[in-house]
Amino acid sequence: MAQIEHFAVQRDRTRPAELLTPPSSVRSVVERMRNVRYEWPPTDGVAVFNRVYLTVTEELGRQIDGGRFPRPRAAATLGVLFAERYLGAVDAAAAGRRTPACWRPLFQYRRHPGVRPLQFALAGINAHIGHDLALAVVDTAAALGCEPAALEGEFDRVGDTLAALEERIREDLMPGPDLLEIADPLTHLVGTWSLERARDAAWSAARVLWGLRELPDLSQEFAQRMDAGVGLVGRCLLTPLR
């Protein structure tokens, strides 16, 4: 698995992902999300995304605990490595280090008064699903010693849980009908991004990255271009509207 080491996340060295029990592993990332939320004001753009993502990750943990996943270990590993991509970006920003290009717009615009909460949430989802999810699939396949194809069931089930993220955003952050008129620029922005299409693209990207694992230069270039492209979409989503 050395060929894909450049995709690896930093994990707890005393408890590698493949040894974690599903409930405790998901609980650990949930606890980290709960802790970081107190570091930011509620209007902070990263805090907006964190609130929504925390709710979804808590639900994922409940589903794993409740036996909704036939292979809880695989689901938990994917969920944890996926979440750690986001938390790694949070840690990098807090330490003044360069974040991945996909996350950079959200951290740069997080306090902009002209960006609405819905935009912050969509930009975070765009970064996380458009870039992090594909890498998390590759990380999980490497950790569990299997092909990505063996994780398709877990990918789909985790994706179904993530679909609740978009629904939650629309319920909590979408302005009322009297505020969101057809001519409102936010209406256009909301319609330009699709979680379903992003999920499909992430699965395709994961398969490409896995296929390129013995060609590290090409796989790294592909990952970098994917990162840059997702970052460009995120910057568009965060266009100030007032």
Rank of each mutant, 00 (worst) to 15 (best):
I4Q: 03
I4H: 02
E5Y: 12
E5S: 15
H6N: 13
H6L: 12
F7A: 01
F7V: 03
F7R: 00
A8I: 12
Q10C: 08
T14C: 01
R15L: 15
R15F: 14
A17N: 10
L19R: 15
L19F: 15
L20M: 07
L20F: 00
T21P: 05
T21L: 11
P22D: 11
V26T: 09
V26N: 04
V26W: 03
R27F: 07
R27P: 01
R27I: 08
V29K: 01
V29I: 12
V30D: 06
V30M: 06
E31T: 11
E31A: 14
R32S: 02
R32K: 01
R32T: 00
M33N: 04
N35K: 14
N35G: 12
V36C: 03
R37H: 06
R37F: 02
Y38F: 06
Y38P: 00
E39Y: 11
P42K: 03
P42Q: 04
P42D: 07
T43V: 10
D44L: 12
G45N: 07
G45H: 04
G45S: 08
V46C: 09
A47Q: 10
V48Q: 07
F49A: 13
R51M: 03
V52A: 14
L54Q: 10
L54I: 06
T55Q: 13
T57Y: 04
E58H: 14
E59F: 04
E59K: 05
E59Q: 09
G61L: 15
G61M: 15
R62P: 00
Q63D: 14
I64P: 01
D65H: 06
G67Y: 05
